[in-house]
Amino acid sequence: MPQLDFANPLLIAQVVWLLIIFGGLYLLLAGRVLPAVGEVLENRANRIASDLEAAQAAKAEADAAMAELRAATAKARGEAQAAIAAALAASTAEAQTRADALNARLAEQITAAEARIDGARAAAMGALRGIAADTATALVTKLVGTADRAKVDAAVGQALAARGNA
């Protein structure tokens, strides 16, 4: 196996050169190359972080605008409902007053009509009593020859009262 031929001076020389090459590679990578790569990655991470931040801020703004819109909508709805309720109340009240006024007028007319009817009935009843008295006086005069008007009146009143039509 050539790898175990330690008598070969090239074997040791190979390791010496390995140390030189590996050391040089390490110094170059550690000193210049890797920090540059790390910088690129860090820049990207910062960029992503700031973009995320901006996106979050924009989202917060949008959320605030949304909330504002919702509040405005709710307020407008509340106002509209209040206006509707007020209009409804006003119209109900007006309708009520009108109905009351109408009722009052009707009641007045009814009482007036009732008074008129009562008057007419009383007049009719008064006329009936006179006619009855006259008729009774005439009948009594024809039968008896004479009639006491006061007595006839009383009797007629008594008879009418007995019928309950007085």
Binding site: L10, A13, Q14, W17
Partner: peptide, 20 residues
């Protein structure tokens, strides 16, 4: 006493540095 093994080490180092 620079061997072909060392030559490939140099190649490897060059490839790594080239990539990075």
């Amino acid at each position: 006493n620079f061997t072909q093994s060392n030559l490939y080490m140099v190649f490897a180092a060059a490839i790594i540095l080239g990539l990075m």
